[in-house]
Amino acid sequence: MTRVLIVHRAGPGVTLQDQGRPGYLGFGLSRGGAADRLALAEGAALLGQGDDLAAIEMAGLGGEFEAGADMRIALTGAPMRASIDGTRIAWNASHALPRGARLSIGGAEQGSYGYLHVGGGVDLPAQLGARGAHLAAGVGHAVQAGDDLPLGDDPKPGEVGQGITPLPRFDGGTVRVVPSLQTDFFGPDQIARFEATEFHRDTRGSRMGVRLIAEAADPLHSDTGLSVLSEVVVPGDIQITGDGTPFVLLSECQTTGGYPRICSVLPCDLPIVAQAQPGARLRFTFVTLDNAVEAERRAAAHRAGLCSGLHPLVRDPHDIRDLLSYQLIGGVTAGTELDQEKAQT
């Protein structure tokens, strides 16, 4: 019998996501995949499984789920209010979800994209080599009430009660960028102004890109840039539209574009942009290509070491200081959490 996760209710931005579909750029299909790939890796570490499995991405709002069989879950990315059968559970952690149990996930308390991972991954048939939805391209569809999501075989049933400390990325911050093809169209004064400006994430944003607003700043512009040939676009590119508004392009962006790009965000810093909640402050700072590659190297090492950074959720009393720091970083504030976790695990 197929093991399923039953969906009773889902927010409008709930989709299945994975590492996306590399290999189709030349056909006009961008890779897509999870808006915050680090959150995929964190969930995989919590469940002790590969990060190539599909998880449920929840933009801003979660949903109501029911276990059709005993299963394990993990929650990562933007912290959301979550409970099992009415008992609050920790974010950035793995939990048992016994058959018949109800998992409720509310709105994001910080950040934009939360992730629900299941042991064995969600095992819908792959399309063009991946299971995730690419809504801009019309591949796959949103997760909806009434869906029964089939699960893959769980490699480690029963292993739950682990926590992970996420890299901070849910409230904006400073984002590293490198020059791109058209940086020179803007001139040194505009580049300096771009670096000095504090932007806010607009409420308008999607898996394709995030709009930035700057208060009390002259709009950026490039006269040369408006007449160039359409050229390759990659996730992380910051394009400046005709009215001077910067857009940071994300995983579901178009593959070519005519708007000039002022710079490109380091892949390892892109989750900071994707996760910034509306209104969050973002600044951009240029780094050299060598520094960017070194940052990517450190990020890859961090991902590879996630498994060894797990900590058990149930703590001895002498661990209380560490537990407090975990709670602060995770954004989970319920004071009675320790007892509730004990009851769950």
């Binding site: 490198v178 020059p179 791109s180 093809l181 050229e231 390759v232 990659v234 992380g236 590119d237 490109s264 965000v265 380091l266 892949p267 290509l289 960017a292 590659v293 990517e296």
Partner: peptide, 9 residues
């Protein structure tokens, strides 16, 4: 030319 960190054009 470079395109972002992981591309050449």
């Amino acid at each position: 030319r470079t395109v972002g960190v992981v591309g050449l054009l």
